[in-house]
Design a protein around this nucleic acid. Structure first.
Lengths: 201, 201
DNA sequence: GTTGCTACCTAACTACCGTTAGGGAGACAA
DNA sequence: TTGTCTCCCTAACGGTAGTTAGGTAGCAAC
């Protein structure tokens, strides 16, 4: 039986765009509230199927979670890369860093449950899942290493401060933003501008 | 029966300093890995008692967790306050901010499982537990509000940048430090100096 | 019209969670 | 000796987790 929508009013209608995608979407939204809050039964409910049916699309919960987290990194990576390319190759280091901050914040705070889940939940994930996205995360980190190096070369970094410190200061601040950000208090553009201005001189 | 230590070799010996304190210590250590990783049974095992016995000392798991989180904030609050008082009242804003960063980092990364648990796990806690320590957290936040205001008054903050942005940038960076800090890579003193130098001019 | 595939459901399994009722051993007081 | 208090244990309760075996409806191919 293909399931009568009317018999499942709470869950809404059938999966329209791939059940696999719907499962990932639901998992990403749940994962923002933690790994254990992300139950297979709640994912299934939100998609409009039963818990057991998930295993037709994924091998395990950790398979889903790993996919979500990896996609979260990929999304923010692409957002930052696109923002930098939009600036053109002759943009100043100052503008490039601010654009990267803005793109990162937008991805994590506005656009993508995948990215915010990836940032918030990562360190509480099972070690096996963490291992599965170390590569992607390392790759993304390289962008920031490059941006800070550019800024340092342009003399925008305080003298005597290591580039590692600057990168970790900046990434820590933007990754923590999910803990306090409220759209009505300060816009993402303002935050990005203030953060960049504070760190560069 | 007062429990024969030899019959429980894995758990080690009896609670020496108050069972209540031992329960809180175990819970704090576990809470660093998340709220759901903090099971009453694992707490009991580490203390060397059985799960049911916990309820002789605490009303519920959330009672324990709430106590741990509150104590975590209290510990870092006292550490920062003590560091500032040790500097004396005539210290420059620059030194005061760096000392506060150092004390916060030491508390969270070296001294106190309570503080690191409080920082890492807070946003994944049940709402009722969160409510129970909003006051203490707000009180601690005030210290940083004051330090940033001092720095701004001394002209150490970049022009055009709101004090809120500076505080959130800084607190985000130090709170996120638990995610990457490895004692062999960079000392806490170095981190504190670099963070303060980066943000102040 | 049989076969086979996809997508889903039902109904369970084991494991573990927070919590509780009730009991027992030791210490101390009367 | 008796009673009471503290601290802990045993044994379970109900609930929920991830997962799985087996079944079924629809559909397309041959």
């Amino acid at each position: 039986m293909k399931q009568d929508p009317a018999s499942n009013p709470a869950a809404g209608q059938r999966p329209e765009g791939g059940a696999r995608r719907q499962i990932l979407d639901a998992a990403a939204a749940l994962l923002r509230q933690g790994y254990d809050a992300t139950t297979t039964r709640e994912i299934a409910t939100r998609v409009g199927i039963k818990a057991g049916s998930i295993y037709h699309h994924f091998a395990s919960k950790d398979d889903i979670v790993g996919t979500v987290v990896n996609e979260g990194v990929r999304v923010v990576h692409e957002a930052v890369t696109a923002a930098l390319e939009a600036l053109g190759p002759e943009a100043a280091a100052r503008q490039r860093l601010e654009a990267a901050i803005k793109a990162h914040l937008r991805s994590s705070l506005e656009h993508s449950d995948y990215t915010s889940a990836s940032i918030r939940a990562f360190s509480f994930l099972p070690a096996t899942v963490q291992e599965g996205c170390r590569v992607e995360r390392r790759r993304y980190e390289e962008i920031w290493r490059g941006l800070v190096a550019e800024a340092a070369a342009a003399g925008l970094v305080a003298p005597g401060v290591s580039q590692d410190s600057v990168r970790l200061l900046l990434l820590g601040a933007v990754n923590w933003a999910g803990e306090w950000y409220r759209p009505e208090r300060m816009s993402i553009d303002e935050i990005a501008r203030d953060f960049a201005t504070s760190i560069l001189r």
